[in-house]
Design a protein around this nucleic acid. Sequence first.
DNA 1: CGAGTATGCATAGACTCTCTATGTCAGAAA
DNA 2: TTTCTGACATAGAGAGTCTATGCATACTCG
Lengths: 109, 109
Amino acid sequence: MNRDELLPGTLALLILRTLARGQEMHGFEIARSIQQTSQDVLQVEEGSLYPALQRMLVKGWVKAEWGVTDENRRARYYKLTPAGKKQMEVETEQFERVMGAIVRVIQTA
Amino acid sequence: MNRDELLPGTLALLILRTLARGQEMHGFEIARSIQQTSQDVLQVEEGSLYPALQRMLVKGWVKAEWGVTDENRRARYYKLTPAGKKQMEVETEQFERVMGAIVRVIQTA
DNA sequence: CGAGTATGCATAGACTCTCTATGTCAGAAA
DNA sequence: TTTCTGACATAGAGAGTCTATGCATACTCG
């Protein structure tokens, strides 16, 4: 684990969870939101974010529309599809299972 | 996250923690131990285990000696080095930080 | 006005890690 | 003797992330 930022394999879940709060968001906003909510522990690099969003588009977990930000810049707004919501639930459950298991191993003296 | 088994990036930590219980163990034993302690949630495939052990040898986190099992088969016994113990502490702390951060994101409504 | 800075999207290439599949060897069991 | 199991090991593929870079546009400040 040379990693400073994310745990590989968790980015999709983080994005899904962030979008599940209901508001449409564009990429930058999603990244900022994850960073803030995690109190600066998790940093989503652009080179990770956009490929992840592409994958999620292809899989139909999110939909995207071009729009304009408050500051009058063009941006792609993402929102969850029903499939994405389902996926979020699956991944959340799976994450909690694995996490609990890892914690068990770590805490076993 | 199509994954059934491990979270990528956590295997070294699991191995370090397992060896930190004090006994020398060989590869198979380490894998079995992780699987058992996690109540069958985490499965360490051989194709993941041995490369991981190699990496850890190279980095000096573990030492290995050839020996013989109870059942009279040859096996490589691994034990933690001081550097490995240190690494374990670093990774544990890092893991807990990241984990807490992810949980925060997941639980934020 | 022009230069720099920040916002926002995007991709290429490298790198790391895990998995599947396969191979080997030796002891145990049938 | 053949088969099974324990144990180690590697090759190759695939997934995911990071660094670096590029582009376009809007805002700011001299």
